[in-house]
Design a protein around this nucleic acid. Structure first.
Lengths: 108, 108
DNA sequence: TAGCACTGCTACAAATAATGTAGCAAAATA
DNA sequence: TATTTTGCTACATTATTTGTAGCAGTGCTA
């Protein structure tokens, strides 16, 4: 699966609209979970593996590469961390946590 | 693939934390794109198919069922539309559009 | 009221993506 | 130097998505 670059055709949008590229990227297994977790603290590969209970190292590695190439995360001496863009992205994801809790009430 | 119900184990979270259930649901192919599009206008199955250029009817139908059971969309005489929860979800997704445009600049 | 078009799907094989397990080389630690 | 830990890679199995065909129901329209 290739990296969804905005401006280029991506899965589901020949025009490569940025929002579609972003949805393609974030929609991949574990992408949002990784960003979510890294917002709490920088983490090593193994820590992310432990956090994302059922991710395979194959997929985790692929996601990390994609998120790195997309400028959302980077690898430092402390492990993987969010970049400035990554932090901004998290700011958009963060309110979903509260929303999800309210939404969860629908299933009780 | 079963519906990720918050409170139950979902892909990647045995505890079924709401945010993880939401990420699981929205992370599936086309889920965010469908919500995005329905925020513009109610749409029929075929309209969604045309919008989501490469979605297969199989997957589209599955996503529509999941989003319906998750209370984010519903089917009316005008086609599929967002529910109140769906609209709230879109309000969270919407800022990503602007963000994505800025992010796209990184790839020029 | 017999066509014809359109809609909302279902079927199913082929292609693509993710998982699960094993394990290895490099770096850190003892 | 011997372990342990880390960051992966390999690869077979399983799950998901695509792509294409097509069908039944509804609504025109002649």
């Amino acid at each position: 699966m290739s990296l969804p670059i905005p401006g280029n055709p991506v899965r589901g949008s020949k025009s490569g609209q940025p929002i579609m590229a972003l949805f393609d990227l974030l929609g991949r297994n574990w992408a949002m979970g990784i960003v979510w977790h890294l917002s709490k603290s920088p983490s090593t590969f193994r820590q992310l593996q432990a956090y994302c209970e059922s991710v395979s190292p194959t997929t985790l590695n692929l996601r990390l590469k994609e998120l790195t190439e997309s400028h959302f995360i980077e690898r430092t001496v402390n492990g993987y961390t969010l970049t400035e863009w990554g932090k901004q992205l998290f700011d958009l994801l963060e309110p979903m946590g509260k929303f999800a809790k309210g939404w969860a009430g629908k299933f009780k």
